[in-house]
């Protein structure tokens, strides 16, 4: 099929920036009003396209942070050498317009009918699509038990910290802080490894469904670890953000 030219079918549309919420020093949640939004599933993403005055374009994918039925939100981590994220986290103002397309993806999604128990694993901003899943579970009244293992550099880098603290029955959140820990910290203080997974993850015999999202190295490590613990590979859904940081 070499050299087949295909016309564009998926259209870009304009969303208007609503509220901006600082989650951490480097992470901001952007609410978007998108007039023709068809609705999304928990775990999907959207693409954002920025066009410079000289016509140069940059395109990035961002996980949708809100649950199905909620207004569209994305949560963006500022990358030091980024082309797009510094603009989104520092320059963008309420009322600005953003070119976007979505929702996108059907693999890294969860619906209550998919069941559980759910084993969620986040590295840094990999928490974003998992937050949509957690909110979706809560909004639909699902009783599926959840464990979330969340790896961050430090307590200050934990995204959605208050929201995760306030999660209701049936959700256990386990943090690991890989670089710096607050005084008196008794939790995990290292990168996720097989030993940690063996202590935290649902036993494979309970037929858990796992979602791992974060930097590529994080996802490779945890997905491999879960399969080593007996999780069937097709029950470990993965989404890799590339090299977004050292966790």
């Amino acid at each position: 099929m070499a050299g087949t030219a295909v016309r564009r079918r998926l259209t870009w549309q304009l969303g208007t920036v609503g509220s901006l919420t600082d989650e951490t020093a480097a992470v901001r949640t952007i609410a978007l009003d998108v007039p023709d939004w068809p609705g999304h599933r928990a775990g999907q993403h959207l693409d954002v396209r920025l066009t410079a005055e000289d016509g140069y374009r940059a395109e990035r994918s961002y996980s949708i942070a809100s649950a199905p039925g909620e207004p569209v939100e994305i949560t963006v981590e500022r990358l030091g050498d980024g082309e797009v994220s510094p603009y989104l986290t520092e320059e963008l103002r309420a009322g600005d317009q953003l070119e976007l397309r979505g929702p996108i993806g059907g693999y890294f999604v969860w619906d209550p009918a998919d069941g559980g128990p759910l084993m969620l694993l986040a590295g840094g901003s990999g928490i974003v699509p998992l937050r949509a899943i957690l909110r979706h579970r809560e909004r639909t009244g699902s009783a599926v038990p959840v464990r979330l293992l969340y790896s961050s550099r430090s307590w200050e880098d934990v995204i959605y910290r208050d929201e995760l603290d306030a999660l209701g029955d049936g959700v256990e959140v386990i943090h690991t802080l890989t670089r710096r820990q607050p005084p008196g910290w008794t939790g995990y203080a290292r990168r996720v490894d097989t030993h940690m997974l063996a202590e935290v993850a649902w036993p494979a015999g309970q037929a858990p469904l796992a979602y791992a999202c974060g930097p590529t190295s994080f996802v490779e490590a945890v997905a491999g670890g879960l399969v080593g613990l007996g999780y069937p590979p097709q029950r470990v859904k993965t989404e890799r953000f590339g090299a977004t940081g050292d966790r």
Binding site: L10, S61, Y107, F108, T216, S217, E239, A243
Partner: peptide, 24 residues
């Protein structure tokens, strides 16, 4: 450069094939 996975080209695949393809 570090590798991504097929989720990252969901938009591109949607553009090319006209339908959700990451689960294909």
């Amino acid at each position: 450069m570090e590798a991504l996975d097929g989720n990252a080209i969901g938009g591109l695949l949607l553009e090319v094939f006209g339908t959700e393809m990451t689960t294909a």
